[in-house]
């Protein structure tokens, strides 16, 4: 396959960037999207040009590092798939493909396609944890959890913190991410002690980071590589409402 990639190039955080077109030849349909970028970078390096900076780590869809916007869709056209797991057979020979970084005030561009997603870490720091000493993995039946809760918590726990939900949201909102964490921890016994402070603090951290507010449009779930459901946002809202009604306040 021969492709034209139009890639956002930006030398650093405070300089202007622009889309630059590159011809890439000899692409195999079995390559992943990141391997095409690797191929391009090898050539650029040999030519003495600056390779395209992009984030990646596990390359097996579990770390959440690799997100870029491909033809206007975070993680590209394939549903429930991270960019590293996106294969070139979903494109056609001769295609022109636009590649851009996540766009959000809370995710400043570091270089080219790499953005600083530290804002999500600050949302986690605000309450996305349990402080109960849980020890090593307990016996399966030591602490009974209703099956429905376990399933919902597990589903929410598959969020890999990639930030695609923010990139897709017309409001630049991180609600799906935050809701996944609130749901994951809030449905399990270990998450109960901090349940109320967690939701208040995480929402406050999310607002503070400059993310927009949710309007229930649903763009996030559509691109989420883990298919986190919108019902988690209802769960967050419910916890938030309950926490705001009680005198128990945030931890800080």
């Amino acid at each position: 396959m021969n492709l034209t990639l139009r890639i956002w190039r930006q030398a650093g955080p405070d300089v202007r960037g622009r889309m630059v077109a590159y011809q890439v030849t000899g692409v195999s349909p079995d390559m992943s999207f990141l391997e095409v970028l690797d191929m391009l970078n090898e050539r650029l390096t040999l030519e003495g040009a600056d390779p395209v900076a992009f984030d990646h780590d596990c390359r097996e869809g579990i770390c959440g590092a690799c997100g870029v916007v491909v033809n206007g869709v975070p993680h590209g056209p394939q549903k429930a798939t991270t960019t590293c797991q996106l294969h070139m057979r979903h494109f056609r020979d001769g295609d022109t493909i636009d590649v851009e970084p996540w766009r959000a005030r809370a995710f400043p561009v570091v270089k080219d396609l790499v953005v600083d997603r530290g804002a999500l870490d600050r949302v986690i720091q605000a309450g996305g944890y349990v402080s109960a000493p849980t020890g090593s993995a307990p016996d399966a039946h030591a602490l009974p959890v209703p099956k429905a809760d376990a399933d919902a918590a597990f589903e929410a726990a598959t969020c890999i913190g990639c930030g695609a939900c923010v990139a897709a949201c017309p409001n630049g909102s991180a609600m799906l991410f935050t809701a996944a964490k609130v749901t994951h921890l809030g449905l399990l016994p270990q998450g109960q002690p901090e349940r109320q402070s967690r939701v208040l603090d995480m929402v406050a951290a999310q607002d503070e980071a400059g993310f927009g507010g949710c309007t229930n449009t649903g763009e996030c779930t559509a691109v989420c590589p883990k298919g986190i459901p919108l019902e988690t946002i209802g769960q967050l809202n419910r916890d938030y409402l309950q926490a705001s009604r009680r005198p128990a306040r945030s931890r800080s």
Binding site: R6, W8, G72, R103, R105, P170, N171, S173
Partner: peptide
């Protein structure tokens, strides 16, 4: 707030998939 949350626009943006009503 939503407008401030995305100061740099996408060069290539798929139309929002949500319902006409939501948009």
């Amino acid at each position: 707030r939503a407008r401030a949350a995305r100061p740099v626009r996408y060069a290539h943006r798929r139309p929002v998939q949500g319902s006409y009503a939501a948009r």
